[in-house]
Amino acid sequence: MSLSEFWDFLVLGVVLGSLYAVIAIGYTLVYGVLQLLNFAHSEVFMFGGYGGLLALTALIPESTPSGMGSVAYVLIGMLAGAALGGAVAFGLERVAYRPLRRHHAPRLVFLITAIGASFFLYNLAGKLFGRNPLPMPSMYENKKVLSVFGAELTITQVLILVSAVAMMVGLDYVVNRTKMGSGIRAVAQDPEVASLMGVDIDKVVSRTFVLGGLLGGAAGFLFGTNSQVWYTMGFLPGITAFAAAVLGGIGNVRGAMLGGLVLGVVETMTVGLWGDDWRYVGAFVVLVLVLMVRPTGILGERVGRTA
């Protein structure tokens, strides 16, 4: 791998990793408040892709928009993705998980429910939207616009990076600096005491799902813009983002961000060095190695400080 290729793959990895990071936040937030591995989060992501796709298909004209028009359509797509993602996450909590909490179901029941919800949701999407991958309507002409150490970035890649960073900064602010965030952190650390302080646990859990769903949905839109939208598109990014959350220390928001970036970079570097067949091997080898040395993840000892 030459130096210029190294920069190419590094930049690609950061772009991909920033998406993983945004998805991973959804896993880690929910785990923080409920100790639940919400495997249906990958479907929240997938529905976000369809949300953007459907909104843009309905609105975008034949010819590719430009200028402020492009900006407007990107925003519409992202908001539609986030909205559908948030709505699916909200419904998921209400329909699938809340009844289990009411009945104090064992943890294993939550896990199998999550897997069942995931199967249900992606098959529902396949039924509703068809099983063929659909391209996102083009919102702009995807030119190369930026050069970082010789690596050329397209508009889509810049868009992904900028929106992902904005979402992470915003989420970090919400969790650490707002009253809603302090409620989430309190429930994550001690739900019973939190309720003694006047925190309505049901409300906090619901908001946590919606928060993760908004981010996951927007990430689905961005991912779909970069490739395509299809009903099982959530599976691999979802598993990788879950691994990223574990790598960073599950329950820890900043850990999830870090884990996402690390896995994104490792993934593209592996591809760069050994080819696409090895794509997921590198990332999961890193996951296993890190967990052998630090079973609680990279930032695991600070779990909950920011969640």
């Binding site: 302090s182 650390q189 005491v193 909950g304």
Partner: peptide, 18 residues
């Protein structure tokens, strides 16, 4: 039932959550 990963100030703010 102190929130272990919140600061003293944040714990007190939680007391005024209502």
């Amino acid at each position: 039932g102190v929130f272990p990963r919140m600061t003293v100030r944040e714990n007190l703010q939680m007391g005024a959550y209502r």
